[in-house]
Structures are given as structure tokens and as C-alpha cells.
Amino acid sequence: MLNLAILLQAESHLLPWQQSMADFFTGDTMVSIGTWIAAGLTLVMFSFIYKDNALFRLGEHLYLGISAGYLMSLYFFNNMKPVFIYQLLPWLDPKFGTPEGSTLNLWVLIPGVLGFFILLRLVPGLGWLSRTTFAFYIGGFTGISLSKVFSGLLLPQFYATIDVIPYMVTSGPDFVKLLNALVLFVGALSVLVYFFFSVEHRGFVGGVARIGVYTLMVAFGATFGYTIMARVSLLIGRMQFLMFDWINAEIIQRLAVIFRGG
């Protein structure tokens, strides 16, 4: 909605009806309508906590439908139009002929055709063409990312894990840092041993693998704790919306205005 309002406001010469629409979309009425719809749908989603019901399923379907429609329109207007259609048919661009307007660019036909191949998965007998696109995409992306993954992710993480060796040599009295590096080193190594299935987990290897299991449990526990924090944060966000934006701003404040005679 804000997007639409900004676009409407961005027009410098609005016709009277366009100005009315801009006022409507940026005005209090639209905000109120939006707040009431959002509050209603929030309560509908919360109703699942009590029991599964038809209203919840309606809300769920609304969410999926609106998200899919919104994303589709977003991709079309933000990408398909400026990046493909206007490049291929530049005279359709409203700014055609100006320095900011599009110019003919036939190179976009290549990704266009490759993209069209994916849609051919729906056509029996021609679905195999989509593999060309996927092969191009996966091959290209692997080529771009492989070296970067090694130099940017794998090696720095590896060096950080074996930090214990420089600490042992240089840190001396910094016991906390040494302990931290040691825990990390032993933890990472033991988890790797746990996932090494070519050797039977018995004796010394079994003991190390057991430490790996405990390390994993600590990691899962930390992740679980953070997940709870995240979910509670989402609940707080919704409660703040219901209590302040809806109950306070839309009901209590408005009733107060009515009873005060304003």
C-alpha cells in the first residue's frame, strides 16, 4: 500500500480523480481499513491455537493466494517489464526517446528463451528442454561461486577452527582465549569423527564420536533457545500491533473522540 501511495505521490501533475485516489490511499481512512483487516486476520490465525476451524483455513488460503499474486505482479512489473519487455520492445517504455528510456537490446532474448524453456516442463514431449536451462544455471552458478566458497567461507572457517595452535604458541597467560579455541577445536574435530562412518564407532573413535554427539546437542540446544526467542519476538510484534495500533488507536482513541464530542 505504501508502495502505491509513494508512486501516486511521485506523479507531479495529477488529475483531480488521481489526486483523490492519492489522498484516499495515503489518508487515515485507508490506514484504518488496513488496520482492521490486519487485526481481523491476526485473530483468525490465532484462533487455530484454540482449535482448527474454517476461518483459520480461509485466512491461510488468503495469505497464500495474496502472497503468490503479489510476488507474481512484483516480478512482472519490477523485472519482466523493465528487464525483458522494454529491452525487446523499447517503444512500449513510457520514457522511450528520453535519455532515461530503454533502447533495443536483443541480448535479452537468450535468458528469455532459457526462461521460456522452464515453462515447457508443462508441455509433454518438450519438458526435456528445461534441462538446458537448469544445466546452464547450475553450471554458471557453480563456476561463479565455487572458488569464492573455498576462499571466502571454507578456508577462513578452517583457519578459525585451528586457532588453538597459534594460541598455544603465543597467547601464554590468556587462558580464556586458549580454552575457547580448545573447545572449538575439539568440538569441531569430534563432530567430524561422529559423521565419519567408514570406521566403526568403538573404543577411542567411539569415545571421540560420543564427545561429538554432546557437542551437537549443545549446538542444537543453543539453536532451539534462539528459535524460541525468535518466535516469542514474532508474538510480541503481533501483540503490539493488536494492543496499540488496533485496540488503542482504532477503538479506544476513536471512542474517546466520540464521547468527548469531538
Binding site: Q157, Y159, A160, L184, A219, Y226, T227, A230, S233
Partner: peptide, 17 residues
Amino acid sequence: VTAVVAPQYYPYLQAKQ
């Protein structure tokens, strides 16, 4: 970062990335 993905980003902090 969100709390859900925070544990996934802490190794980068430890590695000074």
C-alpha cells in the same frame, strides 16, 4: 540477524569475518 539464524552467523564472528 533474526534469532533463528543467529547461531549460523556466530562462526563468522568467531572467524572475524
